[in-house]
């Protein structure tokens, strides 16, 4: 072990193996959170060809639902968290109905502006309803405790987050590939007009897509709240943008791609700061630089296929 560590330090400029593993687990758990939120972006984009700018704010609303469930309504944390996820699903459906459905056949730019407007509306509503000052997210001892590994102590949450992500990912893949609802979703994503003609209830299916995407973001939001226990009305903006970037990196419209993109982004972000501490101020720029590089050289992402434009 000593030897391995020495070799490792030689290659990593003096960082020992324990610290590296700590960064790696951190990166994986951050990446899982990005992945959960990115799935919502990618599902909506796959169906409506629309960047749901308000997705990050839906994520923010969840943390407040969970917060009030525990603090005001005195619910046990698991009840409150489940309620928060369900409420967020309903919020997602409401968002689709109010902001996107009326514009489904409008020019693309109008839909996008509507998405930006919905995002700002949610943020400002949160400021008015919940107050602009950050609040402390309830901590759940069972999940936020630390475990000791030799000299390193790691929060249990660091392991819980990727596991929960993987469970939900497989659940989603099962839903999409082996159920009738999932088949309808895939049909609508391919071509919603044809799917409608073939008897799929397009409006219902799009609603369901939003609900599922929002609920996954909600799961991500709750775990984000546990990991970074400070919630504020604008907290969804950066994770939302980064999750979107993850979706683009993985190839937007592709669920596995979104997960891969989330992990690449999360691990990359943590590692860049770990290995080049002088660049830590540029942490938020890293994701954008990565996005631009991907867009310029492979705009369809890692898993995406080129779609020829019809004239």
């Amino acid at each position: 072990m000593m030897n391995l560590n020495a070799v490792f330090q030689y290659f990593t400029n003096g960082m020992d193996l324990g610290t590296f593993l700590q960064h790696l687990t951190n990166g994986i758990s951050l990446g899982s959170l990005y992945a959960l939120v990115a799935i919502g972006y990618t599902m909506v984009y796959g169906t409506l060809r629309l960047i749901n700018f308000a997705h990050g704010d839906v994520f923010m609303m969840t943390t407040y639902f969970a917060f009030y469930g525990v603090s005001t309504f005195m619910l046990p944390w698991y009840v409150s968290f489940i309620l928060a996820v369900i409420l967020t699903g309903a919020l997602g459906m409401l968002l689709e109905k109010g902001a996107y459905r009326p514009l489904r056949n409008a020019p693309k730019i109008s839909i996008m502006i509507s998405a930006i407007g919905a995002s700002f509306l949610l943020e400002n509503l949160a400021v008015v309803l919940f107050g602009g000052r950050p609040k402390a997210f309830p901590s759940v001892k069972v999940l936020t405790d630390s475990v000791q590994f030799g000299s390193v102590s790691i929060q249990k949450l660091t392991f819980v987050i990727p596991i929960v992500t993987i469970i939900f990912l497989f659940g989603l893949l099962y839903l999409l590939n082996h159920t009738k609802t999932g088949m309808a979703m895939r049909a609508v994503a391919k071509d919603y007009e044809t799917a409608g003609i073939m008897g799929v209830n397009v409006n219902l299916t799009i609603s369901q897509t939003f609900a599922i995407g929002s609920m996954l973001a909600a799961v991500g939001g709750i775990m984000w709240g546990l990991k970074f226990p400070q919630i504020a009305p604008l907290m969804g903006v950066m994770p939302g943008l980064k999750a979107f970037i993850a979706a683009v990196i993985g190839g937007i419209g592709n669920i596995k791609g979104a997960v891969i993109g989330g992990f690449i982004l999360g691990i990359g972000e943590i590692m860049i700061v770990a290995f080049l501490p002088s660049l830590s101020g540029y942490r938020d720029a890293f994701a954008f630089v990565f996005l631009i590089v991907i867009l310029l050289f492979k705009p369809t992402g890692i898993t995406g296929e080129k779609i020829a434009e019809k004239v």
Binding site: L50, I51, K108, M112, L241, F244, I245, V248, G281, Y282, D284, A285, F288, V289, L291, I292, L295, L296, P299
Partner: peptide, 23 residues
Amino acid sequence: PALRLRGDYLAIATLGFAEIIRV
């Protein structure tokens, strides 16, 4: 470089550039 992109991709790339300038 960015104007090779279209529609929402252009929007996100320009948004990204603006954020980079700010950072």
